[in-house]
Amino acid sequence: MSRSAAVGVLRGGAFAAAGIAFPFVVHAAWIVNIGVLTLMYAALATAWNLFSGYSGYISLGQAAFFGLGAYTLGITFAHVGIGSGYNPFYALPLVGAGVALASLPVAWIALRTRHMTFAIVTLTLLFVTQQLAFNLHSITHGSSGLMLPTPSFDIADYDRPFYLAMFALLLLGLGACWLVLRSKLGLMLLAIREDEEKARGLGIRVTTAKLIAWWLSVAVSAMVGGVWAYYLTFIYPESAVDPLVMIGAVLMTFLGGRGTLWGPAIGAFLLVPVQQYMLTRLGASQLYLVGYAAVFMVVLLVLPRGIVPSLRDWIDRVRERQRTRRGPIVREEAHA
């Protein structure tokens, strides 16, 4: 294993240990609740970054797959019955893989178009999915919403299983990103982001590369949606396919730094607690929406590259300065 890989594994291991230990140390339900939501957004943003951050194709339809995952789990509950307790968590990989597979034909068509059109088509996809949730009344119960059975967890640590599930999904997303970045697929995606025509000219199978990244990204998003549905036990079209969830995940990715490994998660860790605080302070009042828009504007206009790349630049500059300061001293010693 190379040195950078070892550092990566070490960093990931420390992060995983701290994350898993957290709900066993902190028992206050409201903190763990914020933890669940933070991890949910972190996983969603990481998944979004996996496709859009690396390939440069901005997808505005992520919430559609979040919602599809939520509804798939909910409908399976209502019509098939997969038991309660921990059982639904075991069904998640199937939900994720299934939703992602089903999304591939639409993705293939959408990916025939280029950047701007692609963003628009995926955005329309979001609204269409929401409409399907309304219209397919017989399986989704439309606007009256879908009820899931209440999980039979110990009330004292009720949030903990969901926290751990979300955390597992975040680790899965980060792991996938890490592997993609170190693989040929990652290089292909970055080449597509820089210059797709040239990448195609060099013999890179651009569509295949984009579809693989898309599949991974959608699978993680759908699984996150599934856990979220089970956590809330009640979903309806506006909450499951919510443009605000979408824009939230994108905002966090931009804040942290898109195209980086840790950026999206860092963005979520910074923003979600603030978001929850604003929600409780401003209530359901629409002022909350204005605040959200303002934060987004500031991030996009002031820090369009995100925290991680800006920080990395700054560290590089500091190191460079130290090196130049040390330089002349070394030469003087050589003279002496």
Partner: peptide, 18 residues
């Protein structure tokens, strides 16, 4: 171009909120 998509989306949210 892509950034403008998000900036105008934020603007839309702001207008909706106000």
């Amino acid at each position: 171009s892509e950034l403008s998509l998000l900036v105008t989306w934020a603007l839309a949210l702001g207008i909706e909120g106000v």
